[in-house]
Design a binder for these strands. Structure first.
Lengths: 260, 260
DNA sequence: TGTACATCAGTGAACGCGCGTTCACTGATGTAC
DNA sequence: TGTACATCAGTGAACGCGCGTTCACTGATGTAC
């Protein structure tokens, strides 16, 4: 693939970088995101602390690299989930929702790194990279909403053919969206991200996407931080209910049986 | 009030404890929850670090005290909001929702302390206290759902008299709740909390309460941790839309005009 | 009201620790001829 | 294929720092007679 030709030194370097990140993430898993320490990583790698400075100029550079990696891994997981249900926006939303939760629970240190407290001394240097990475994850929801929004998704017709309409009455013209937003309500970067993919994407759909993100995030964050388990035995069930409710927002019911 | 009679020593002690907590919270505001340091607090109080050990046996004891305080302050704010709209469950939910967001935004270090990453070395000693404090906050939602649930709230009749029913069709028998839960799905402490206040409280209503909590929490957490502002100019508006949607879950529309 | 003793908040110095970062160095790997 | 030089990952020691916690102590506040 990218195996152009690497010298022994280059191969080792790539491997070492991978090891550093892997150990860093594991340490975060054990001691919390704030417990990340160059010295501890070096210790576990059997290196001197100073040696790490061949790979990152500073602790913050390592952190930035980790954050970007984590966003990418999340975006990849979500995008794979979305693609697993072609031509079925509600099914996509459900799959992405389930994946978001499972990713967050299964890799909670990563989740905490990007969605939790900022790391104590950490200041973003090149936040363009972080922002772009976050947009990659956010874009998955945009694509789903676009597919469900009348007159946008090329797949819309197919989706409507297979999915039933949920509400008793006649299908509403567009998924429930409260306000009427304009693009000036959004930051340029975000707007650009949505509109380059879908030129006709309406601002109301962007607002809806963000609200959906919020609904997915709420129960997941509570669960990851241990606020749900002391109340309820099976947070996944609660979340499943919420997802089913969410799909109604798109005016569609999930195509298949719920994924428990 | 509780001014029974305090010696000069006792008065000073109470004041000092108040100062310690206040400074601790301010430091957390500036350096993040993980930046809490006994030495830094002592420095700002003009004391030696060791002196703090007259007040707390250990750093973790201070943290526990802070956490309990924070939960209490939150519960108090939410309860006040709820009471500001008597006999109007949907209005209560809206007021509580707005208050939750404003509390979280305005006192984000406190929010992070209880809903964010655990503090690095911190281990809960007497978690009974923390759990009880969390239940106090959670109980506010329980009371709202109870008031809206048919056949429970004594205030239900009054609420129905003043509130309009939202859906075009006839009012559904109970607010939308997906599963049919039993009390064995919940932890005993949580169930006890709900059922001692409302003996007839159904498990489905408890599940709904937790889901509502999740919906409030989602956008709020994203905003507090800086994931909304890079996308949208006015997160409050998004949250307002969400709240209005939420009120429909209770089958009621907000009584007054939306609060911006 | 005055004296003798007990309490206890606060001092100051010390402990052992882990941290990020710098720096002159060594020695294996890579490159040019 | 062999030699001379350049690169650069990693060493080991040191820097200055802040941390939580302990401990013998001082001195003001409170209490009992």
């Amino acid at each position: 693939m990218d195996g152009v030709k690497l010298s022994r030194r280059e191969r080792l370097r790539v491997e070492t970088v991978r090891d550093i990140k892997e150990i860093a993430l594991r340490h975060m898993a054990e001691q919390g995101a704030a417990g990340l320490s160059l010295r501890a990583i070096a210790r576990e790698m059997g290196m001197t602390a100073g040696a790490l400075y061949s790979y990152y100029d500073t602790r913050d550079d390592l952190i930035t690299a980790l954050i970007v990696d984590v966003y990418d891994s999340l975006a990849q997981a979500l995008e794979a989930a979305r693609r697993s249900r072609p031509d079925d926006p509600a099914g996509q939303l459900e799959a992405v929702g389930v994946t978001y939760r499972e990713w967050a629970i299964g890799r909670s240190p990563e989740f905490q790194l990007v969605y939790g407290d900022p790391i104590p001394g950490y200041k973003v240097r090149d936040d363009g990279a972080e922002l772009a990475a976050e947009h990659r994850a956010c874009g998955v929801l945009i694509r789903i909403v676009a597919a469900a929004w009348p007159g946008i998704g090329a797949t819309r017709a197919a989706a409507e053919a297979t999915a039933e309409v949920t509400t008793g009455g006649p299908a509403r013209p567009a998924p429930a969206a409260a306000g009427s937003y304009t693009w000036s309500d959004f930051r340029p970067d975000f707007a650009a991200m949505a509109r380059t993919s879908f030129p006709d994407f309406p601002p109301d759909a962007a607002a809806l996407s963000l609200r959906i993100w919020g609904r997915l995030h709420g129960l997941v964050a509570l669960e990851v931080y241990g606020h749900l388990r002391p109340q309820v035995n099976d947070p996944a069930r609660l979340y499943g209910d919420e997802l089913r409710d969410l799909c109604e927002l798109l005016n569609l019911t999930p195509s298949g049986a719920p994924t428990a």
